[in-house]
């Protein structure tokens, strides 16, 4: 399907979509505001004028076929794409009301406020303990009492504490895949970020480890604003409050998750969530 055949989608915003069905989750205020955001890798325009508000302390799922731009958008939220050559953007992204592209903003400080969990768990070749406190050590915080407290709080927050509390100083590589992913979540929340970005956090996990991470997401949203990219439709349906469907770099539909999966407004959304294309 070429872009030319796409229906012209007026970019939905939170205010347009809040008249959702009864029983929809209450709408929290926007924490991340994406405003008419376009993004280019060199000459290739990969995101086309996206506008959406991401509510605080809720889970927002980005779905869409590979190459639709959802990971690119996710990586823009903490300016990780800055590391790529030849990129440029138009429009703006606001976190808690402030532009992340403000020349006065320090990118490192921004990233401290935004934790990230990747598709494949990537523990450092260090002990479980040192993995969790890595960002604090980098920041020069070495007090044992503080680090001990952070390790316990973060591992408990990632529902891993009970499984590893007796072997904190053993290598992180001795953990199972599911445990490693939860360790990465513990590391991401150690520095108390405001936002947690998750890029297919369960795609390498078995169903039991996936269920544990989903339970964890459900718990963590009480404290963090969470954005999750997933290819698993059932996972998006289970864990998210709102779902955004992207196709070919455009935002096709954004609504409360119940509506996206029960009564999507757009035929392409319906075809995608029911597994008929993409």
């Amino acid at each position: 399907m070429s872009t030319a055949t796409l229906p012209s989608t007026s970019r939905p915003t939170m205010t347009q979509t809040t008249t959702a069905s009864a029983g929809a989750p209450a709408l929290n205020p926007a924490y991340i505001q994406i405003k008419d955001f376009s993004f280019y890798y060199g000459a290739a325009k990969v995101l086309h004028g996206l506008s959406l508000d991401i509510p605080e302390q809720q889970v927002t799922a980005f779905i869409g076929p590979s190459g639709c731009g959802k990971s690119t958008l996710l990586r823009n939220l903490n300016r990780m794409n800055d590391l790529v050559d030849g990129i440029r953007h138009e429009g703006d992204i606001l976190v808690n009301g402030h532009s992340i592209y403000d020349p006065l903003i320090e990118v490192i400080a921004l990233r401290k406020r935004i934790g990230m969990v990747f598709q494949k768990s990537n523990p450092f070749p260090k002990s479980i303990y040192e993995n969790v406190v890595y960002s604090l050590r980098v920041a020069g915080r070495n007090g044992k009492a503080e680090l001990d407290e952070v390790v316990e709080r973060s591992l408990k927050g990632a529902a891993l504490w009970d499984e590893v509390k007796d072997r904190l100083h053993e290598s992180a590589f001795g953990l199972s895949g599911g445990q490693m992913q939860r360790l990465c979540i513990a590391r991401a929340i150690a520095n108390r970020p405001e936002i947690l970005l998750m890029d297919e956090p369960c795609s390498a996990l078995d169903p039991i480890a996936t269920a544990k991470v989903e339970e964890l997401i459900h718990e963590l949203k009480k404290e963090f604003t969470i954005v999750i990219v997933t290819h698993n439709m059932q996972q998006a349906a289970r864990v998210s409050d709102r779902t955004a469907f992207f196709y070919l770099g455009k935002l096709i539909e954004y609504d409360v998750t119940t509506n996206i999966f029960q009564n999507p407004a757009n035929a392409q959304t319906e075809a995608y969530v029911s597994g008929r294309f993409g």
Partner: peptide
């Protein structure tokens, strides 16, 4: 009915 439809829809 609404609870059932919602559960089938979101919880598979």
């Amino acid at each position: 009915d609404n609870e059932a439809i919602r559960y089938m829809n979101l919880r598979a």
